[in-house]
Design a protein around this nucleic acid. Sequence first.
DNA 1: GATCGTGTGTGACTTTATCACTGAACTACC
DNA 2: GGTAGTTCAGTGATAAAGTCACACACGATC
Lengths: 211, 211
Amino acid sequence: MPQHSILDILPAQLRKEAMEKIRIVRFPAGQVLFSAGERCQGLPLVLQGSVKVQMTGASGHSIVLYRMGKDDICTLSIGCLMTGRGYRAEAVVEEEGEAAMIPRGVFDRLMDQSPEFRLGIMESYGRRLDDLMLLVEEVAFHRMDERLEEWLLARASRGVIAITHQELAVELGTAREVVSRLLKELERQEMVRLSRGKIELTGLVGSATPA
Amino acid sequence: MPQHSILDILPAQLRKEAMEKIRIVRFPAGQVLFSAGERCQGLPLVLQGSVKVQMTGASGHSIVLYRMGKDDICTLSIGCLMTGRGYRAEAVVEEEGEAAMIPRGVFDRLMDQSPEFRLGIMESYGRRLDDLMLLVEEVAFHRMDERLEEWLLARASRGVIAITHQELAVELGTAREVVSRLLKELERQEMVRLSRGKIELTGLVGSATPA
DNA sequence: GATCGTGTGTGACTTTATCACTGAACTACC
DNA sequence: GGTAGTTCAGTGATAAAGTCACACACGATC
């Protein structure tokens, strides 16, 4: 039984109709949900798991634009769905999970019939736009060492983070060497301990570089 | 009589109703349509003129995110309208013009009643998301000299561009000094001629730095 | 335990950002 | 028409970040 807040708020009858046409897709970690250039098959609602959306520039470099988790809507798909253009980014599964695929027809019908659904879609859209605007500002104006520390702190829950420098470079939209050097500097300051594919946080605390 | 494609496609009856509640706003060059933190009063449809949307980061630096021109929809406002949060960016008029302000109630009604209106809104949204994604890639990975040349070429229609180095720095999300130096270098190469507040394009052609 | 693929470290150099300051060009006002 | 004030532009010094090239280290596998 798919659980997603935007489905839960639908009136019973509409919800029942939608449920019948929705396809549930399980995805394992590492799977590519869609790549740049591909056409959109429907609107994915993330039920469980975590997916990162990243794009690769003309330069060949990649950057992670945002993540989707439980209860998120793949807002990016809506644009592709409506204009018929291909995706500009790609989506890669980080934690396995599942999504409900809403076909175009059902999406149109829900948009037509349910103000709640519309509101949910528009809110999701607003958040995504905000996220991207913040990312632009971050990339354009923030120092890389601060961004790295913030990134590490944001997922410091388990003390040890399993990630390669290359992957971390894509998260931040920079080069692997830059990440390696900054991490090495953090290690010298005894903020982290490094080993192959792993970063152990030891002495990193919020606002490490006070203004 | 306001002219906007998303209004033109409405069925006659709905269109008539909408027109009655729409407020037409004239704006002179330089006017700030909205600033960061402000609440959204309604959805602006740009009928005429040109508006740039820019945000200022925590660092105090600004960057232009995108522009709106004739027949555009201020997609950013939709998110604010739906979530009730304030704007994250500000909008400044570049060329005077006018906009039709659609109040929340009318917007909701049009979204409810008109599939054409919905499609127009979603398309506009998709385009904006694409724009921002491209901007992220541009800012993260492209060289400043190339971005500057592209910017100049993109509005080279009149041969002379009236803009200060500071304004150009905001366009590209960099510092004034960087723009000054790059422009000076272009002048040495006889690509441009510089004077106070003006840049004259002399020898700049597309793909100035072939791959 | 030799081999190979993938990660990581680092020097040398270029590009971009920041800071601090100078001078030049325009505006307005006496 | 001279002068004071403001906005623009130029530039040196230095720091941060990106690029290129290459060495080496780790861990899986044969």
